[in-house]
Write a protein that binds this DNA or RNA. Sequence first.
RNA 1: GCGAAAGUGGCGGAAUCGGUAGACGCGCCAGCCUUAGGAGCUGGUGGCCCGAGGGCCGUGGGGGUUCGAGUCCCCCCUUUCGCACCA
Length: 820
Amino acid sequence: MYDPKSVEEKWQAHWAENGTNEPDLDAAPSPFFNLMMFPYPSAEGLHVGNLYAFTGADFHGRFQRLRGRDVFEPIGFDAFGIHSENYALKVDVHPMDLIPRSIANFTRQLKRSGIMFDWSHTVDTTNPDYYRWTQWIFLQLYRAGLAVKKEAPVNWCPSCKTVLANEQVEDGKCERCGTEVGQRFLSQWFFRITEYVERLLKNLDWIDWSPSTLTAQRNWIGRSEGALLRFRLAGEREESLDVFTTRPDTIFGATFMVLAPEHPLVEELTSEDRRDEVETYRAAAADVDLVERRKTDDRKKTGVFTGGFAVNPATGEDIPVWIADYVLMEYGTGAIMAVPGHDQRDFEFARQFGLEILPVVAPAEVVDDASDPSTVILQLGDEAFVEHTEGERLINSGKFSGLPATEGAARIVEWLGERGLGEPKVNYRLHDWCISRQRYWGAPIPILYCDTCGTVPVPEEDLPVVLPHLEQFKPGDDGIAPLAKDESFYRATCPSCGGEARRETDVSDTFLDSTWYFLRYPSTDFDDRAIDPSRTDRWLPVDMYIGGEEHAVLHLLYSRFITMVLHDLGHVPFEEPYVRFRKHGLIIRDGAKMSKTKGNVVNPDEFIDRYGADTIRTYLMFLGPYQEGGDFRDSGIVGPQRFLSRVSDAIAAAVEAGATGFPDAVVERAVHQTISQVTEDFASLSFNTAIAALMELLNTLRAGGRVPTLDEIRPLVIMLGPIAPHLAEELWETLGGEPSLFDHASWPAFDPAKLTTDSVEIAVQVNGKLRATISLERGASEEAARAAALADEGVQRHMGNASIRKTIYVPDRLLNLVVG
RNA sequence: GCGAAAGUGGCGGAAUCGGUAGACGCGCCAGCCUUAGGAGCUGGUGGCCCGAGGGCCGUGGGGGUUCGAGUCCCCCCUUUCGCACCA
C-alpha cells in the first residue's frame, strides 16, 4: 500500500543527511547549473504558481542528473522591495521581523515539495552578506561611468510616496494601491543601459530562448531607424529644434511642429500673447502621469500654439510650433515634425486645429497617371495616407518628386546632411534605468556627498552600507526618503577629505538585487569576494533558466545588462548569463485566474498533506503543456494519485513474483518505445506527454492482470525519478538498488532495433477516405500493398467496377487508391 | 490600434516535415469484488443513422490548394497574453 507521507519524510531526511542534492562545486566533472527564478517570499506562503514553476524546473534538473550531469539547483529569496514593505506596513510588523518569518515558512514548504534544492547555497537579498555585493556592483558601474545622477520626470504615487517605474503604473494608477499617479522631477541615479542597447539587441540573435521572450525583448528595446533632422527657429534666433523621424521622405509635408509640453525650448518659443495659455496647458500636462499620457483610446488631441515658428529645412518655409501632450518628452527628442498627410495622429491634430495638410507621398498608380509628380494632388478622406511600401512615390517634394519613397528618404537625408541639417539616426524605446527608490526596504545606494569633494563612492572595504532598523520607515509625502530622517544613518565622514559628508538616502530598485543572484549562488561560501573566479568558470553561464514570462523584459534584460558590464570589467568570462531560457506557462484554476478575492487559491500545504508531494508534482506537470500552463481542477488529481499507487502495487507484485528478462516481445517493444518517447519529451519539457507515456506503459505492463518482470519495470522506476522522486527512491530500493536512485541509477537506454515490429498496419483509403486497415510486412512494396488492399472485401465494395487511376503509397503508413 | 499565441469529445488535453483525429487522464456507463465504500479490478465511452455488415458527419465559421487538411493559403469570428499617441 502506497503511503506518501512516510515515504516522503524518509527520503527527504535521507537526502538532507547524505547531501544528495549538494554537488561538489569545486570538483564536479559534469556541471549543470539548473536555475529557476527565485521567489519573493510573500507572507501568505508559497503559491501554487511558484510550485508549478519550480516543479517543472526540477523535472528538468532531475532528468539531467539521471543522465549523468552534476546538477546544481539552488534557490534563494528576493525579499527586498515594495511588496514586502507595503505588506509590513499593512500588518504593522517590521520587515526585518516579517521577512525572516516568511522565508522560514517558504523554506519549510519548499523542503517538503521534493525539489532538488541545494540548501547549502541559498541567497537572501536582504542579508547584508548579500547586498554588500549588490552595493559593490553599483560601485563597479559608478567607476565605469555607467551610474549617473540626473534629473528626470518620474511617475509619482502620492499614496505610496514613491517614484514608480512605468511598468508599475497601470491605467494611470499605481499598480499596488490604485491611486492616480502624477509626475515629478527628481534627481536620481540611473544606470546607462542604453550604452549597451545594440549588444543587448544583437545577442538576441543567438541566445537560445523561448521565441516569445525574445520577441518581447526586441519590442521593449524598440529599435527604429530613421533620421535626426534639424529645424532652425524662425527669425534671428540661434537655437534649432531637433526631431527624430522614421519618415524623412515626408519632410516636404511637415507643415507644423509639435513639442512635448516639458520641452526646454517651449519657454524660448512662446510669444507674449500666448504665454498664459501655454503655461496653463503645461501645468495641466504635469498633473497627468507618464502612462496616462500614452493612452490611445479615443482621447481627443489637445494642444496649444506657442506663437513661435521654425523653418522647414526642405521647403524653407516658416511653420508654426505647437505643444501637445501626445508628444512624449522621453521618446526621441521630445519634439516632432508633424506631417499630417502621413501620420494619423498629426492628421487628427491638424483637423482639430485647422492646420495645413499637405500630402507628399502617393501610391504608384496615382503618380504614374500624372505628367508632373511635383504637382500631384492626393485626396485624403478621413485618414492620413500612412502606408509605407516600395511602390509609393514622392509628390510635392521639389526635386525629389517622383522618387520611390524609400529611395527619397535616403536622398533627402543626404541632401540635408550636406547642409548640416540632418543625419541618419537609430532611435530606441529603451531608456536608461532609474534605480533610485525613495523607500526604506532596499539596499542603500553606497554614495556619499561631501561639500568639499562632491559625490564620493563608499570605499569597497567599507561595505556594506547597512540598512538601519528604522521604526518609522513609512515614506513621507514630501518625497524625502525614510533614511533621510535618520541622522545616525546619513551623517558620515568623507572618506576622501575626512570632513563631514551626507549619505545617499535613496535605496536601490529591487530589480538590481535580482540582476546577479545567480552569479552569487556558487560563491556563497566566500565572504571576501562577490563572484569566485574558479567556481564561476566551472558553473557559469547558467545551463538552463526557467521562469515566468512576466519577467521577459525587466529582470531578464537588466540581468543581461549587468552581466555584460561585469564581463567588460573583467569579473566574469561571458557576457550572456542565460544560454538557454524557457518560459513556463501560467496555472489557473477551473478556467479562471487564482486570486484571493475569488477564493480559489490552491494551498500547497493542504494538497501535500492530503495527497503527498509526488502526486501534486505529477498532477501539476500532467495537467497541460508546461510551457503553456494549465488548468488545475481538483477532480483531476486522483488520476496521478491512482497512477502512482498502481506503480507501487505493480512493483510489489513484480518483486514477489521475482521474474526477470523480457519474455514478451510486445511488452519489450513497449518498454523501448516508452524510453524513446519519454527521453524526447523530457528534453523538450513536454512533461505532460512524458507522464502519459509512462501511464500507458504501466497499462501495458499489467494488461489483463499480468505481473511485470523486474527487468520490464525497472526502467519505469528510473523514469519516474524526476516526476515522483520520493516514490521512485522507495521503489528503487525495493528493487534492490542502492540509494540514492539519483546517485546510482542512470537514465535507461533504448535499442532502436527494438522499437519496431516486422509487420505494420497500414491505412487503405479509396479516394481519400479510410476504408480498411491491412497488415503488411514492414517495408512492403507498393505492388504488394496494392494486391493486399484489393483483396480486402471492404475495399472491393467501395471500388465497385471503377478502375484505379492513381495510387499514392506512403510505405508502412498508408495506401490511397484514386479510382473513377 | 499594433504584436504574439491559441480555438479539437461532457472536461483537462494528445496528434502539426499534410498521411488511420481524439493518446493519457478526469467524468460517465456496465460488470466483478466487498458486510460496506467517495476503495480496488475488468470492459465500454465523439455525434447521428443502421438491415448489425456497416454508413454518414465531425478539430470556431466561410472559401481555397491537394489523391488526402486539425495541420498549408485567404477572409471572418472568439479568447488569452504582451505593447500601447514610439514620431
